[in-house]
Amino acid sequence: MENVPESSSKGTKRRRTESSDAGNTSSSLENDLTFSDTLIALRIMRAQFPQILNVSVEPFILKSQLYSSVKNRTQVDRELESLRRDKVLRLFKLNTGQDDHAVMFLDDYLKQIDRVFKRMEGKTRAEFEVFEWFKIHVLDSKLETGIEHQELCSLLSLGGKVKDSHISLLINAGVITRQLIDPNMYWIAIPNIGSLLKGLVQGRKEIISLLSRRQYKEMMLAVLEKKRLRMSPLDMRFHLRDLIGSGHLRSDQTPAGIIIRVSKD
């Protein structure tokens, strides 16, 4: 398994002691469908994040996937909040659904910003410092998924004089996106994630359609997880965890193994 990034936060010791629980990245979903701990689930799903050609995005986990893997949703919310406050990870609001959220380890997110910064380096000049200001002053103090324009400028100004071009650079890099309801509010975002979010939506539809065409709208998990998706670069395991956690599918244990069924309306 690849190494999970270590942060300098209070959660470092906890993560180190649990690193041996991250499991086998190639194991069947039937063997690791549920976990007792949110952080262990995060570690395993990070290690199992699909390798996608031509997409430069650090591993992320959907909140819905955690809901499918840790049966107590209140526990998931409580442990995510603790890890967020300890600056182990960040939560991001996605535009793929009303309550879709992604989770990314903070060290992975900082790598993602650095990668975007390096790619843009030849196109801009003096405004480069805004990326460091954002990492040091905004991410360190603003833990929520959104931020108001004035607060963003105020925090960035701790690094230097903020210009409109600085804000435009952050938007163009995909580090922040404007909220549709209020143009003075931004979502803190994951750069380069657009194509994967499109695949997420299309993959959801493809799997629901696949199961809905079957007589009983169900399929054995061992069979289903081997099918390849045409409409999404994300793998079947990624989508099944999401769809089960969001309530679109359900899993039932039978003597023959786990069956995945379309949830009734």
Rank of each mutant, 00 (worst) to 15 (best):
6 E>P: 06
6 E>M: 10
7 S>A: 09
12 T>A: 10
13 K>Y: 11
18 E>M: 15
19 S>R: 14
22 A>G: 07
22 A>L: 12
27 S>R: 12
31 N>L: 15
32 D>T: 10
35 F>P: 05
39 L>N: 03
41 A>M: 06
41 A>I: 08
42 L>V: 08
48 Q>A: 06
51 Q>F: 12
52 I>W: 06
54 N>I: 08
56 S>E: 15
56 S>M: 13
59 P>M: 05
63 K>S: 10
64 S>W: 02
64 S>H: 08
65 Q>D: 11
73 R>D: 09
76 V>H: 03
79 E>V: 05
81 E>M: 12
85 R>H: 14
87 K>P: 07
92 F>M: 06
94 L>E: 11
96 T>Q: 05
98 Q>D: 14
100 D>S: 10
105 F>Q: 00
107 D>Y: 03
108 D>A: 01
109 Y>L: 03
110 L>S: 00
111 K>T: 02
111 K>H: 05
113 I>W: 00
115 R>I: 09
124 T>D: 07
136 I>T: 13
142 K>C: 14
143 L>F: 12
143 L>K: 14
146 G>E: 14
148 E>F: 07
150 Q>R: 14
154 S>A: 15
156 L>M: 09
158 L>Y: 13
159 G>S: 11
161 K>F: 11
162 V>S: 09
162 V>W: 09
163 K>R: 14
172 N>A: 08
174 G>P: 00
185 M>F: 10
191 P>A: 07
195 S>Y: 02
199 G>T: 00
199 G>M: 01
205 K>L: 10
210 L>E: 03
214 R>A: 04
214 R>E: 05
219 M>F: 05
222 A>R: 05
230 R>L: 08
231 M>I: 03
232 S>F: 02
237 R>H: 07
237 R>M: 06
240 L>N: 01
242 D>I: 04
257 G>V: 00
259 I>G: 02
260 I>Q: 00
262 V>K: 00
